[in-house]
């Protein structure tokens, strides 16, 4: 029930933001279409932790801003590699352990690794990721462990 109300609010906020109309007739139509969508989602059993991730802590926003800084730093490092005359790349496929308990935690961790330029998650098996790194600096296991700790902090309530 909480999930249904959360999805309804999110959908209606999206509808309002994209339409920009505030006439009563159109607002009614918007509410009706959102209700219909929630009904369909309920019928399809989509109202779980994956579709409506209300279980995440609000610290996720803080984590995203930290991630933004990391992305910027590593984008700078990759840019230096691209522009260097010799292109000092040393490609490696490394195993990164992940200790998150929930599936959502794994998804956030793997996506964060991929989002940071210089590292890409290639394959996931339970408890481990296979990560492709462009340089030796990018393949820094302590950096991954730090990121994993931060993800564990936001993953569940």
């Amino acid at each position: 029930m909480t999930k249904a109300v959360g999805l309804l609010i999110a959908l209606f906020a999206l509808w309002l933001g994209l339409s920009g109309y505030f006439k009563p007739f159109l607002l009614t139509l918007g509410v009706l279409s959102c209700l219909f969508t929630v009904y369909l989602a309920r019928r399809m059993n989509l109202l779980d932790d994956e579709a409506v991730p209300l279980q995440l802590r609000p610290g996720l926003l803080l984590y995203w801003s930290w991630l933004g800084g990391e992305v910027f730093k590593s984008a700078w490092a990759v840019s230096k590699v691209i522009l260097a005359r010799e292109m000092p790349i040393s490609q490696q496929l490394i195993a990164v352990p992940c200790s998150q308990k929930t599936e959502m935690g794994h998804v956030i961790f793997a996506n964060s690794i991929t989002l940071t330029p210089g590292t890409v998650t290639v394959e996931t098996v339970p408890g481990k990721f296979l990560v492709h790194a462009l340089t030796d600096e990018a393949a820094n296991l302590e950096g991954f462990a730090d990121m994993g700790r931060r993800v564990t902090e936001v993953e569940a309530r």
Binding site: S90, Q91, Q92, L93, I94, A95, A110, N111, S112, T114, L115, V120, T121, V122, E123, V125, K128, F129, L130, H132, D136, A139
Partner: peptide, 29 residues
């Protein structure tokens, strides 16, 4: 990131490996 991961995973499954691979722990995983 999802699209990038999809490309990387598809290339990995198709057997394409990086040139001059320094360290390879894929067997471990």
């Amino acid at each position: 990131p999802t699209a990038t991961h999809a490309v990387a995973n598809a290339a990995f499954v198709a057997g394409i490996r990086p040139v001059r691979l320094r360290r390879n722990e894929s067997g471990e995983v």
